[in-house]
């Protein structure tokens, strides 16, 4: 397929993706740094004090973006897993592998910052609330996925097993998202939604959205970087050094088939 004279399929091969990702990472990293910097500035110096929660509410600027990323990344990971199973495409499985640790980290952060927010506002670090419990299960899913892959030596079997695991587990994401509506437990409802105007001051929403964009850029940068690690680990090519030219795809396929 050739749109605008560019062969887009070229970049779906690990050999072409590797240098492309290397060129993209600095841009996404810079965007992440800039956005998180601006988000922190608005969050701490522009957004006013909350009339009910005082300064404790400022945890929202890391809590909500981390929680959103934990769910976004899971869906994205499951999409790559489905694509991998459907097309039997190794790079898609590699994306699944590259996203999982970042998703697990954001899930952990969502739970930790949630505990830090829960203690002063609810009086408890943890309650078995629907939202908290389903988010904890998401953390176990990420960890299970990583351990499942690590426990299978044959890469193709590991790819398929973890892809199926990721796809089955995606059912938990809508449960997390709608948990605050389906069960009336402790966790508050959505602060920002597509259908209603935000329940917060504009500067608060702005800070939160800018932080979320920053976390997105960070996730893209770090996932691309991990993708490069995965490519080198799985292809085991001696020519991956910085200045060596990318080898031909056919040649690499032959080599990796024998390893």
């Amino acid at each position: 397929m050739s749109v605008m004279g560019i062969n887009w399929f070229k970049y779906s091969s690990p050999q072409a993706f590797y240098p492309l990702a290397g060129r993209l990472i600095p841009w996404f990293a810079a965007a992440a740094l800039g956005l998180i910097g601006i988000g922190l500035y608005i969050g701490f110096f522009v957004a006013p004090t909350d009339f009910q929660q005082g300064e404790a509410y400022r945890i929202i600027f890391v809590h909500v973006p981390a929680a959103w990323m934990s769910m976004f990344l899971y869906v994205l990971m499951a999409l790559w897993a489905g694509l991998g199973l459907g097309l039997n495409a190794r790079p898609s499985f590699m994306m699944t592998q590259a996203i999982a640790p970042t998703g697990a980290m954001f899930t952990f952060l969502a739970l930790l910052t949630g505990a830090m927010w829960g203690k002063p506002t609810w009086g408890a670090w943890w309650v078995w609330d629907a939202r908290l419990t389903s988010e904890l299960i998401l953390l176990f899913q990420y960890i299970g996925l990583i351990l499942l892959r690590a426990s299978i030596d044959d890469q193709r079997r590991a790819d398929r097993a973890s892809a199926v695991f990721a796809l089955v587990g995606v059912v938990n994401v809508p449960i997390i998202y709608f948990s605050v509506r389906w069960w009336n437990t402790l966790h508050q409802g959505a602060s920002v939604s597509m259908t209603a105007s935000p329940k917060m001051a504009t500067t608060m929403v702005t800070a939160m959205l800018v932080m979320m964009l920053g976390f997105w850029m960070y996730s893209i940068a770090v996932t691309l970087a991990r993708m490069r690690c995965v490519i080198v680990e799985r292809e085991r090519q001696p020519s991956w050094g910085k200045h060596a030219p990318a080898p031909d795809v056919a040649e690499v396929r032959e080599c990796s088939g024998g390893v």
């Binding site: 400022r58 640790p101 952990f108 952060l109 910052t113 770090v222």
Partner: peptide, 21 residues
């Protein structure tokens, strides 16, 4: 406003995790 421990633990842990990753 008295919530320093909670706020700074949250932001500190997030920063540590991102840089660590």
């Amino acid at each position: 406003g008295g919530y320093g421990l909670y706020v700074w633990t949250s932001f500190g842990a997030t920063a540590l995790c991102l840089v660590g990753e």
